[in-house]
């Protein structure tokens, strides 16, 4: 008897993008390690969430998501935000807030060309 394993779109997407995902995680891990080294940790005074910001930009470059998708994800992330806020797990809600903010900001930056007056 054959067992049929459902191959979802998500699974396919992960399979296609596994290298990019791993690279992004790798960038984050390396930067997180580097900025905690003696002397180099001075960088954190200037940019407190550098690994997070850089890996976010790397992810943007690698995946080139649609701006609408970013905004949708940002709004969907409010749901886990609500759950973790109810549980008062600030360690998760704070980075989540930054993530939501960055995605909305990215959407806005990509949308700004709409306001240009066409001559």
């Amino acid at each position: 008897m054959k067992i049929k394993i459902p191959v979802t779109d998500t699974y396919q997407w992960i399979k296609l993008n596994i290298v990019k995902i791993m690279f992004t995680v790798f960038v984050y891990a390396v930067l997180a390690y580097v900025v905690n080294r003696p002397y180099l940790n001075i960088v954190r005074i200037a940019v407190s969430d550098l690994p997070f910001l850089v890996s976010y930009i790397v992810a943007l470059i690698l995946f080139r998501p649609k701006k609408e998708s970013l905004l949708k994800i940002a709004l969907y992330l409010l749901i886990p935000g609500f759950i973790f806020s109810s549980l008062r797990v600030e360690k998760i809600t704070n980075p989540l807030g930054i993530f939501i903010y960055l995605m909305i900001a990215t959407y806005l930056i990509f949308s700004l060309k709409e306001i240009k007056i066409k001559k």
């Binding site: 609408e68 905004l71 949708k72 940002a74 709004l75 409010l78 749901i79 935000g81 609500f82 806020s85 109810s86 939501i100 909305i104 959407y107 949308s111």
Partner: peptide, 20 residues
């Protein structure tokens, strides 16, 4: 209060949903 916290999460949703 989880209900009030839930309402607070509707605020950003209400603010940025218009963009979509």
């Amino acid at each position: 209060n989880p209900i009030i916290i839930g309402i607070s999460y509707l605020i950003p949703l209400g603010a940025f949903l218009g963009l979509l």
